[in-house]
Simulated assay, not measured.
Amino acid sequence: MIDATAVRAVNTLTARWARAAVADEGTAFAATGVWPLLALLTGGAGGPARQELEGALGVAADGATALGGQLLGSLDAMDGVRAATGLWTRQDLPIRPEWEAALPPGVRSTLTGDAERDRKELDGWASRRTGGAIAEMPVPLTPDTRLVLAGALTVETAWLQPFRPGWLRPMHGPWRDRSRGGGAPTPPTPPRPPPARAVPVTPTARRGGPARSRRRRRRPVPGRAAPAWSAHGPHAS
């Protein structure tokens, strides 16, 4: 279960970015992928950087690393969700041992200084963590690169009502009265009619005896076939 404190913090960060970046325009994004990364960094930061990260996260730095790790693990355990965070530092860059020990398994790695070798390592991480959705790490590498931070979040969903290719003409919003290529919901399958069933003849009580089924026999008309009855109605016999 995801901690309620982390949920509120992620939603607050998303709302703050939305107000600053898009104002009243339409968009769709979330800080869910980057918040765990910032939380892991906050626990190892110091000085002004620590205070700035606390302000961005909305939680105290002392418990940020643990909270970020819990959120990352909860997301990755969900069906259809892949969530991962990566931190690579150059081999000669000093790292606080107590902070490194608090990081989730598989997050921390090192850069060798060999750009080609490091590029293969980063690209492989991106491909594995996203199920092949991202084949290459979108970051330049040079012998002077000292730190690489990465966050990956992919969600696989299926529409309850599939879409079909077609043209749309929105009635509202920025694309109003403009034809746009897109998809239209597939109309639902109409319900099948109920199966036909035979209706039994209502029995009539006979005076002084048990109830019997009463059938009316039709007198055949010369030159005309008598109808035969079935569950679906009369047909010629």
Rank of each mutant, 00 (worst) to 15 (best):
G80V: 07
A56R: 05
G233A: 06
M137D: 00
T5W: 00
P185E: 13
S127V: 01
R207S: 09
P162E: 09
R96W: 09
G181A: 15
G113H: 01
T89Y: 13
R218T: 15
G46V: 15
S230M: 06
L41W: 01
T154P: 09
A31I: 04
L53E: 03
A9M: 11
K120Q: 15
G173K: 03
A135W: 00
E52R: 11
G26R: 15
W175M: 15
A60N: 02
V201D: 10
A18E: 08
T202R: 15
L72E: 00
D177S: 12
E116R: 07
A56W: 10
G166Y: 10
R176P: 11
T12W: 10
T42Q: 12
A6M: 10
A28F: 12
G33Y: 07
W99C: 11
A126Q: 05
D24C: 02
W159M: 04
T27R: 05
S230A: 11
R207Q: 07
Q51T: 14
G55L: 08
R207H: 09
R216E: 11
G151S: 15
A66K: 04
L53G: 08
L87K: 01
G58R: 02
L53C: 11
L72W: 00
G26K: 13
P162Y: 09
A158P: 02
P203I: 09
A64N: 01
R180S: 00
M171V: 15
R146M: 06
